[in-house]
Simulated scan of single mutants.
Amino acid sequence: MSRTNAGEAALLRSARRKRWKENLAGWFFVSPWMFGFVFLMLGPMLFSLVISFTEWNMVGAPKFLGFDNYIRMFTSDPFYYRALTVTFKYVFLTVPLQVVLAILIAVLLNRAIVGIRFFRAVFYMPSLIQGVTLALIWGWMFNDDFGPINFFLEQAGLPRVHWLTDPDVALYALVIVALWGVGSPMVLYLSALRTISSEYYEAADIDGAGRIRKFFSVTLPLLTPTVLFNIITSLIASFQTIVLAFVMTGGGPAESTYFYSLHVYRSAFTHFKMGYASAMAWVMFVMIVLLTGLILKSSKYWVHYEADGGGR
């Protein structure tokens, strides 16, 4: 009996050592991510939260102000509400257009025809151009004097458009540039389309449904999980847009493209009001969280999963 107990104890110790080694190996492999998360994301976020309650020019010691930065934001900043309005307008224009355009392109490319891989690559490759490079290319294309877009408009007998110098047009020009990256969500929709069972379409054919009816009754409902994901990611990215306005318009003309993120950047690195900029960044973070929460809350009414028989 004692030998049996000793053997069981030895097996238990061996299993514990094995489990400990497996856990240690797991932590070792995730440690680069953990290091980056703690020191490059969580740490700076907590630091900015503390700084948001102070006045700090990044040189001297921070001066505690309490909630003064947050109060000033909503009461005495002449640019705050302008930046907020421009950003919301941009977000609510860009996100729906990206979703609709990406779905339409994905549906058109979800065909077994000769050369379809070439066209998929053509629509996806522009999304690889991002940041400053994208802004410089489109800044040249939208140029009033020698831009190719105005050149082709003139060749067609149409008047020139002051894409980046007209306050009534500049924001829409940036929306067009944002749609240039529609290839990334298009790939996700295309992947989701390939997973839809043909049985649904066969059943729709038996019921006499046409292409449009099949799209709205079969394709679109089964794409809604991917739509939800793309809406949330596009929403977050659109709220954080800064490069296009910074490079192409500088926030002008007449502050028509003065995004919230650009206001945060200038407050921090032009006026050296790091505390105030941190407060604005946290307000934007809260707005994004609230909007994301509302979208997730509403998803139970319009997101359908194939595994659940088309419903939740």
Rank of each mutant, 00 (worst) to 15 (best):
N23D: 07
D308R: 14
F152K: 00
R13M: 11
F67K: 08
V38N: 12
D205I: 10
M73D: 03
A170M: 00
I71F: 14
K63D: 10
W180V: 06
S217Q: 15
G60D: 06
M248C: 04
T270C: 03
D144T: 01
F53P: 03
T226V: 09
T249K: 00
L291T: 09
R312G: 11
S31V: 04
L291G: 04
T165L: 00
Y305K: 12
V286H: 03
T54I: 10
E306T: 15
R213P: 12
M248K: 00
A173S: 08
V99D: 08
T224M: 06
L109A: 01
Y265M: 07
P225V: 15
I129R: 04
G60M: 04
D205M: 14
L291W: 07
L12Y: 07
A209T: 02
G26A: 06
V218W: 09
A25F: 04
F229R: 09
G251I: 06
N69G: 12
L101S: 13
A268L: 00
A254I: 07
G7Y: 15
V91N: 14
V218T: 12
W180G: 09
G183L: 01
D68E: 15
Y172M: 04
L222F: 10
L222C: 13
M248A: 04
L164V: 03
F246C: 06
S76E: 14
I206L: 15
Q155C: 03
S298V: 06
P32M: 04
R19E: 07
L93S: 14
L174S: 01
V247K: 02
S14A: 15
L42H: 12
Y305N: 05
A192E: 13
M58K: 11
S267C: 05
T292K: 06
V218G: 10
S198T: 14
T195W: 13
V227T: 12
V303F: 11
H304A: 12
Y260D: 02
R82G: 00
T4R: 11
R3D: 06
N69Y: 08
R117L: 12
V303M: 04
G60W: 06
A112T: 10
G147V: 04
S217N: 12
R211K: 15
W20K: 13
W140Q: 11
R211Q: 14
A170P: 00
V227Y: 06
V132H: 01
D168A: 07
R312T: 08
